[in-house]
Design a protein around this nucleic acid. Structure first.
Lengths: 104, 104
DNA sequence: GAATCGCATAAGTGTGTGCTTATGTGTAGG
DNA sequence: CCTACACATAAGCACACACTTATGCGATTC
């Protein structure tokens, strides 16, 4: 179940930090490590988890691997969230209308 | 960090099932167990986790405890998701406009 | 007021997770 | 080619997590 992979992937603060960094712009694994105090294997493992959760996708570029945010994972979260839109606070009640388009 | 509590709470399939059941209508802990093959202590512990994640809230009713979905947790997920709206697929591109209201 | 019910908490246990060190694989450069 | 580089994978370990059984605690019921 992909839903499980997604929430499990996001349950780790280090992985959320990696994802957030990638959201600011795609880059390779080494660049991601800069200023993050994380070993190379650990980063590789985290990226693997994010990849199977469809939160991140890779593209081989020579001997580098370019990573970037995969919209598919985010869309799945949005879909999950949409199931419970009846409970969303009034502050974002307006979203309900737009989300109807998603259902189609 | 509440964000951590939320994603960790949702990382467990049993807890997501409990949450989904509560989304269909509030009820007490015993009623939640029906048809779920889960022990009473396990249910109590799951509810405790969901509660600290602001995904669920309780209300004492005599010797029963009524549980229901807490919109606060869902709103926090929506906020987290909104941070990455630049990457949402075009299919729900329309949401971007509405989410601007959430920012202010 | 004693028994029962609904639920929480304590303590112990097996499994999963995130890290480490070590090594493998593929690409680029001299 | 042969070395260096970017990254993946393997194996082991400490800790967290979800479960169990046992017990506690407050509220109802008789």
């Amino acid at each position: 179940m992909i839903e499980n992979d997604i929430f499990r992937a996001l349950a780790d603060p280090t992985r959320r930090a990696i994802f957030e960094k990638l959201a600011a712009g795609g880059m390779n694994a080494s660049a991601l490590r800069e200023g993050m105090e994380i070993s190379q294997p650990a980063m590789s493992q985290h990226l693997s988890v994010l990849r199977s959760a469809k939160l991140v996708r890779e593209e081989r570029q020579g001997r580098f691997v370019h990573y970037e945010v995969d919209p598919e994972g985010l869309a799945l979260i949005a879909q999950w969230l949409a199931k419970y839109r009846a409970y969303w606070p009034a502050r974002i009640e307006a979203l309900k209308v737009l989300l109807k388009d998603m259902d189609q």
